[in-house]
Nucleic acid binder design. Structure first.
Lengths: 152, 152
DNA sequence: GTTGAAACAGGTTCCCC
DNA sequence: GGGGAACCTGTTTCAAC
């Protein structure tokens, strides 16, 4: 499909603020409202836009503690990998989980209330998951940058 | 301020899909449309909702390569830290940057087109930033989980 | 907090170029 | 593909309970 520079601009605007009206977008893009509307519908239909969401301030809702956790599995048989990944997906404290190259197998981003809640999570939930060998945690001291926006 | 269980439910719904109508939300929450409307406005005004955004499918827009990059600074004087953080914020390939505990000072999440683009980014942009001591990169083999939703 | 209704704005459709 | 106008759905405001 065609995906031109106007579409890229449009995606950048919608990633910054999805509540803008088509009229506002049409001004920024020098297009008519109809054209903007059709381009957005096209981007939605073709899957360029996954979904529209509200981003919540984690500090105000008492989820201020962020940690990254490296995890090594005991074994790497397909069964072990699949079971581990399935169980991790069900943990609401785990916002992100990546299978990565390097010394460890996985990198997890964890969000909880405070360090006590993190300890609780680590002991009660994470390390009780099947097939975990070792873990290594890093605490976030400061969030320097955090965006969901892909730039073109 | 009051922030009750209905507000939490409401935030969960809006984090999952911010394009729902107030009528749909009122059904799920067993509230009137007016009540939903007022709660949302309250959550926006008090800062619980940072913003509304579109989430873009990175693979369709040719940004399929994700890497995490550990960075150690040469020195940790306030000037060095501030300069480094300022420069990192301006790099569009860096979606996230955290000051963390542990062997390295920072953890960065990088998004680019492919491994060639990553090499380019590393050599041309990242390592030319001031005060960087050493770096250590980990490539994402598979994204097991990735959500922006905070659970309550 | 609820209901209902009125006013308005924006999304959506249609027809034109 | 883009533009303009009509239409229609959802948001916003308000009054009364």
């Amino acid at each position: 499909m065609t995906f031109d520079n106007i579409d890229k601009k449009l995606l950048e605007y919608l990633q910054a603020d999805s509540k803008q009206t088509n009229k506002e977008l049409s001004n920024k893009l020098n297009l008519s409202v109809t054209a903007v509307y059709e381009r957005i519908k096209k981007l939605e239909k073709e899957g360029f836009i996954d979904k529209y969401v509200a981003l919540v301030n984690k500090d105000l809702v008492e989820k201020s503690f962020v940690a990254f956790c490296h995890i090594k599995l005991i074994q790497h048989s397909q069964n072990f990998v699949m079971e581990f990944e399935k169980e991790v997906k069900d943990l609401s404290e785990v916002l992100e989980c990546y299978h990565i190259s390097g010394d460890y197998d996985y990198l997890l981003k964890i969000l909880v209330k405070d360090i006590a809640a993190f300890r609780e999570f680590l002991v009660k939930k994470l390390t009780s998951i099947s097939h975990i060998g070792s873990t290594h945690s890093m605490f976030v001291i400061n969030e320097v940058k955090h965006t969901t926006t892909i730039s073109f």
